[in-house]
Nucleic acid binder design. Structure first.
Lengths: 148, 148
DNA sequence: ATGCTTATCTTGCAAGATGCAATTATTAAC
DNA sequence: GTTAATAATTGCATCTTGCAAGATAAGCAT
């Protein structure tokens, strides 16, 4: 069991570096955390602040200010929910969507470069395994998460 | 290919949460970044500042200050290398090693809880897959890394 | 309705993290 | 020996973080 932690750790770090390197190489000036926020907003429909903060494991106050920055940068739109005006619902602006897509392309390009080293069987096995383990990790502790 | 990014992303996040939750539940007061630094120092023999900073993808100036904090907390030891006195070699103090081991136990316990949900075949497949993909990701871009 | 409790989000503040530019100390190159 | 390169640190300005304390809205009891 002892090298499982190491595997996750290294994998984690390498994926982070893959993203950072991607941004740098393509001259995109965005932080990892902002990229993640755009990604999550894009993935879910009408997420609230609290939902996304929980999902990303960020303190709500920090998240609130990150969103303010993204709104100022015209990447994210925030509007009060009709049914419950305490809640703010997030969505991407056109520019935000465009940025999210651009980031997606970059990361996928880099991921493809990784998978080129592997044959189809390995590829399928890996994706299957990632799905299983990700699901299992979500089931152990799922506070108030949106299904991811 | 498009949900591979998502898989990595979610897996990444869930592993981060697993670590944070572990620390919180066990009442360990340590940040993720400090935990990672201890882990890496423990894993490598006589790593230099620059090596670890590169490995973790942290700016060397930030890393230098993180190490100062850890040295003050009596978790890390820093000594000049004999052959090259510009270089500082890092190691764990007794307390640092103890902390690293404690963290390791916590994370492994939580990981075991995840793997309980899976059968032996799935477990083996997943570990095998993680190894392959981690290796592949390391080979695509390996700047000046120590072998991980 | 009125008050009490809970939920969502925002700000004040103080502490910590970040990264560029400049500096120190050491080694390498010529 | 002078100059260049490398490893690490410090100054400084900026950003991030999270607790505590608000502001506002919704739910719920009486």
């Amino acid at each position: 069991m002892e090298d499982v932690r190491n595997l996750f750790h290294v994998l984690n770090r390498r994926f982070s570096l893959l993203q950072k390197n991607g941004f740098r190489e393509e001259g995109i000036d965005i932080s990892l955390i902002h990229s993640h926020i755009l990604f999550e907003i894009d993935k879910h429909t009408q997420p609230s602040m609290q939902q996304l903060a929980d999902l990303l494991g960020i303190d709500i106050t920090t998240f609130s200010r990150q969103i303010q920055t993204l709104v100022k940068a015209n990447l994210v739109k925030k509007r009060a929910k009709q049914e419950d005006k305490r809640v703010y619902v997030l969505s991407l602006t056109q520019k935000g969507k465009q940025t999210a897509d651009q980031i997606d392309t970059i990361i996928n390009t880099h991921l493809e470069r990784v998978f080129l080293k592997l044959n189809d069987f390995e590829k399928d096995t890996i994706i299957h395994s990632l799905k299983i383990v990700t699901k299992a990790m979500g089931e152990v502790r799922n506070g108030n998460m949106i299904k991811g």
